[in-house]
């Protein structure tokens, strides 16, 4: 694992801005209002946690932030560009260049090794860089898995799989990393390790994280916590002294 060198701090410029974002889904004959009139700003270098019970619209919010879904109404601005009316092609390019994802169920390709799963994302990076193999190993080293690089997902523990997913999320050097219940399927001890890895990347590399979870304890490690309820932001709180992931208990 990387050692923390310094806290890069949160900058004043917004990396993401949501203005009155709404999202409705048509599920069969029922219209579901997943997100309603959400205003939100995410600052560069911030570690933001979105809390809320099941069905509160957390994942929908994350999908909108990541450009994997489009709002029914409202605006989403990423690095100053309004993406809410982007075509699927432009959204694909946006995801390719700016966003990293960490999913609850890891979503690793089962037929690719840990290294190949990371390379799966590296191949999409357009800028000049060293060969994919080297980068993948370096990224796996960052999450402490270089020894397990040739193992297939089924040969890895849940925590290891999620750390591979983190390495994959970093592979494209994204400006924003989104985590959807990244420790939702992990045990307490492994979950803490995963959060430790993410916090280190936030503090050392200055990566911006938005993590959605229903676990309120996780809010203690964040810079800011947003509480979602019934598709709306109920309240938000600034965490003045976030604690280390090693200190949290759930």
């Amino acid at each position: 694992m990387v050692k923390p060198l310094s806290k890069t701090g949160i900058t004043t410029d917004n990396i993401v801005v949501l203005e009155g974002a709404c999202k409705n889904y048509q599920m069969g004959e029922i219209l579901i209002k997943a997100l309603c009139d959400v205003d939100l700003e995410v600052k560069r270098g911030e570690f933001l946690v979105v809390l809320g019970p099941s069905g509160s619209g957390k994942t929908t919010l994350l999908n909108l932030l990541g450009g994997i879904d489009t709002p029914t109404s409202g605006r989403i601005i990423i690095e100053g560009v309004d993406i809410s009316r982007f075509s699927q092609k432009r959204l694909t390019l946006l995801r390719r260049e700016k966003i990293g994802f960490i999913f609850q169920f890891f979503n690793l390709i089962p037929t690719l090794t840990a290294r190949e799963n990371v390379e799966f994302a590296i191949e999409l990076a357009s800028r000049d860089r060293s060969p994919p193999e080297t980068d993948a190993i370096a990224l796996l080293k960052m999450v402490g898995l270089e020894e397990r690089s040739d193992h297939f997902p089924y040969q890895l523990s849940g925590g290891e799989q999620q750390r591979v997913a983190i390495a994959r999320a970093l592979a494209k050097d994204p400006v924003l990393i989104l985590g959807d219940e990244p420790t939702g399927t992990l045990d307490f001890k492994t979950g803490k390790l995963v959060y430790k890895a993410m916090k280190e990347l936030n503090e050392i590399e200055g990566k911006t994280f938005v993590i959605v979870t229903h676990n309120a304890i996780i809010g203690q490690v964040a810079d800011r916590v947003i509480h979602l309820h019934d598709g709306q932001i109920a309240r938000q709180e600034i965490i003045e002294n976030p604690i280390s992931p090693e200190e949290i208990i759930w």
Partner: peptide, 14 residues
Amino acid sequence: RGEIGLAKALGYRN
């Protein structure tokens, strides 16, 4: 479906 979603989320084109 999950893998397709992942590939597209990562930025693979149609």
